[in-house]
Amino acid sequence: MAAVTGTAIGPDETAPVTRQDPEPVYRLRGVRYAYPGGHVALDGIDLDIVRGERVSLLGANGSGKSTLLKLLDGIVAPSEGELRALGRDVAAVVAGQDAFRFHREVGLVFQDPDIQLFSATVFDDVAFGPLQLGMTRDDVRERCAEAMDEMGIAHLADRAPFELSGGEKKRAAIASVLSLRPDVILLDEPTAALDPRTKSVLVDLIGRLGKAGRTIITATHELEIVPGISDRVVVLGEDRRVLADGAPATVLADRSLLLRANLIHEHLHGHLDGGALIEHSHDHVAGDDHHHSSGVDAHDHEVTLPA
């Protein structure tokens, strides 16, 4: 793993300076999205995100997180409502107006790396973005080297995607987005199906990207990483609207809210205490310890969080 000094992370001096807008990076008013078949993915979202914020987007599977990220990335247009990003109307971007520049400034790391790694080799995938930008060969090579070093995959440059493990593919997918040095980085369930080491690398990366001034929005349902990767939590409920919006400490402490959003589950569990069966409800939230101090069966529970 390269040292923190990699320029892939730092602010991009070569990018055109966007004028300091009072307008937030993202501004959503009443955004709705419905699939062609009629299924409604988002039902009225109001949201503002300012430059440099690190936001976690929480919600159970199917709550519309991925769709929201695709909207924010300007690859699909909302069915209704106003969505402005970086001072532009996203619907126009989707229709093709200035799409090129927009996609250079916003990067989305898809949930499935196989979708994102569509070229024959890792290097080709990482180079795809800079190449489409029209950079010279030397610049392209430099950018790729930076991004691959940052993700620790420089030795995999000539490999085909089918030769990589899940963690390596994920790193390659992220590198392919980093090589564009976007100002806004969107991540869709980045830690899904990852081994612990890669997970920690990822959390680390998000932290550093944030410190360097990038705006980062992460969709996830893994509660344990949320405090480490964000200053703000937005919860999407099963009704497809924003259920809560606040600091991690506040939101994550609200048990009933988390239950309503299907982010934690509650179950009954029982254990014998001096011959009698004691039953009580019990849930697993990040950092929760559970500890019986009465009776013969005094014990501590080790909390293992749901995967």
Binding site: K70, D73, I75, V76, A99, F100, H103, R104, G107, L108, F110, D112, I115, Q116, F118, F123, D124, A127, F128, G129, L131, Q132, L133, G134, R137, V140, S176, V177, L180
Partner: peptide
């Protein structure tokens, strides 16, 4: 479905029809 997703991924990295290679 996959081709739609890959198309979206290509768009998201600046694909505009003509592809340049290295």
């Amino acid at each position: 479905k996959m081709s739609n997703d890959v198309y979206a991924a290509m768009l998201a990295r600046g694909f505009s029809g003509e592809m340049r290679t290295y």
